[in-house]
Design a protein around this nucleic acid. Structure first.
Lengths: 345, 345
DNA sequence: TGACTGTTTTGGATCGTTCCAACAAGCTCG
DNA sequence: CGAGCTTGTTGGAACGATCCAAAACAGTCA
């Protein structure tokens, strides 16, 4: 079934010009005369030519392959899927294509896919690293002049560019809101304690709680896997304490939904009997019942931002390190029991 | 910052052999002596060699680039994200990498990404086509000997390989279950009427409903966007009818969750006051409250199945057309009001 | 020793493109 | 009229791998 490939030479022949001219047309050079260009384009159409990018960027200096690698740790999490979509948007309209891979939190898999991407000559890498990733894993890329942008989870010690949400102030804002609603015992639920994100969010919790004059109570911090099941479990453990909380800021929306599940299964209605605040603002947060009050990160926007930073670095050629912190805002809906002030679009 | 690339010639020099020998080592040929192989591998390690796949498959006959393209119409939908993960699994462990792109239901975008993928020399394409896709869009690929597998949404008239769920029997089974629980007016909620999937599922509904002796009532079919918001809207419209239903089979899980939202917002408890059945069995279906009774498609398994079919066709070289219908099963949980029989793992 | 194996190794030629220096053709101008 | 300039066009040499036919090597045997 292997049709003979149509190459520049074939269309050069058909159009009665040289392959160099065809190449110039391909690159949209202003040097070729209009009529010649038309002839060439027609021949291309005629013969069904498809550009061979591999051959092209073999010759091209550096590896401007037009591919960016995107690696996420959990694509089945809506947050990352949206992030990827955001990246795809900006990357795509800049004429790049995106190599998207999922590591499922496996460091080995991450190593594999990154290696594979390198073999394919990616122009840049955008990664939400798997848990326990060693920053030095990306050093070879950086040394080879391939920009790397770390997103969502920052890598301590690495001098890589990063785009992360302003976690501390997000959680702090959520806590302040709960305090303003009269809550005195506020829990922090979910998250893996061995991640940087966990500590960033916890630090926001700690500072807001102490600023409110409550003092930091270790018993109110209940880590768990940042999943729906983890949230249900965490809220159960929190409620079992001697002086149970009346409200909780959750590590992320998945955890928050889980917390709502956990509350319901013990006949407590989230928003009425217990205040729940999430983090991320995934799409379901808006339509869930009760609608989830959450710290909005806008994953798509974050993906776009990260994509832009990566493209900028690719264009610049240099591998400068830049840390972007995207701002977050509290979206008050129903799950915290506050009266809803304005329509949430 | 452009380091000079390390090539086979460099490592040949370092190892004191010819580039041909290095190439043989690269391909794991049994022809090279063990000691030579070791020398070469050491040199590769030393110099930090990275294989240039682009250069390789320029020479290689055909386009065995080791890339498969995966195009989905909505990555933010958990179903497709999981499908992609399933594909990634099998594709990855076969030594391929996956080019994943999202079309967001835009045909133009789909055309763009497919073209771009072709330029990059994909070895095969797996696509869940955007709404309104013309099957002939993929003809050039097939003609060029690139296997194309259509997933989830079949393309009428096309002689492309496909992997789709057994939609009719899935919905029919759901209807029968609701009938066995005593429901007499069962609605079909959600989905775009201009898609093949909609008609497949609706046909299952129609046949089961008439088989039960109820007759097909047009008023009980309420199309809507297959999203959470669409589901909430659809259930509202269904309940506003003269003879409202007491149960509904929904187009997919997202619609079903939306239907639950819609019920709650009018003080009806899904599972108790109204039976809801979904389709897909996304992860949240298990942990939601109430847990969703749904027709399980197992998107990951479907992705794996589709990936395998594609890999098979790539390996075979030929572009034979094969239609796979993956079986589905009803998973009874809580949202339909049936007593839960066994633990759902 | 020399012919005859079988195992390893090797120098081109090649894939489809871009880059570069050179060239042809049509001008203007002193 | 030829030098200089602009505008289009062109042949060959890359890029980094693989493939192929042939060569080098090591043993075996008459």
């Amino acid at each position: 079934m292997g049709r003979p490939r149509v190459t520049v030479i074939d269309i050069a022949q058909a159009a009665g010009v040289s392959k160099s001219t065809v190449s110039l047309v391909l690159q949209g050079s202003p040097l070729v005369k209009g009529t010649t260009r038309a002839k060439v384009l027609e021949a291309m159409n005629e013969l069904g030519y498809v550009y061979n990018r591999g051959a092209a960027n073999l010759r091209q200096t550096g590896s401007k392959s037009g591919i960016v690698g995107v690696v996420v740790n959990d694509l089945t999490n809506g947050f990352f899927a949206e992030l990827a979509v955001g990246v795809d948007m900006v990357v795509q309209s800049a004429g790049f294509v995106q190599f998207l891979s999922n590591t499922g939190e496996s460091i080995d898999r991450q190593r594999e896919v990154v290696a594979s991407m390198r073999e394919h000559g990616i122009s840049g890498l955008l990664v939400s690293p798997a848990r326990g990733t060693d920053p030095s894993d990306f050093a070879p890329l950086v040394e080879a002049g391939i920009p790397v942008v770390v997103v969502v989870r920052s890598l301590p010690g690495g001098k890589l560019s990063s785009v992360v949400a302003d976690n501390p102030s997000g959680v702090a804002g959520a806590v302040r809101h709960l305090v303003s609603l009269g809550h005195r015992r506020i829990a922090f639920l979910g998250g893996f304690p061995d991640t940087a994100v966990f500590h960033e969010r916890l630090s926001g919790y700690r500072s807001a709680v102490t600023a409110a004059g409550f003092g930091f109570d270790e018993a109110l911090v209940v880590p768990s896997p940042p999943s729906r099941a983890g949230g249900a479990d965490a809220v159960a453990r929190a409620l079992a304490a001697d002086a149970p909380p009346t409200a909780a800021v959750c590590f992320n929306d998945a955890t928050a939904f889980g917390a709502c599940d956990g509350l319901r299964s013990r006949r407590l209605e989230p928003g009425r009997d217990f205040a729940v605040v999430g983090f991320d603002d995934v799409i379901e947060a808006r339509t869930a019942v009760p609608a989830l009050t959450t710290v909005s990160v806008d994953p798509q926007a974050m993906g776009r931002r990260a994509g832009q930073l990566l493209l900028k670095q690719i264009a610049a050629g240099g591998v400068s390190s830049e840390a972007v912190m995207t701002s977050v805002r509290l979206v008050v809906r129903e799950s915290c029991g506050a009266p809803r002030l304005a329509a949430d679009v």
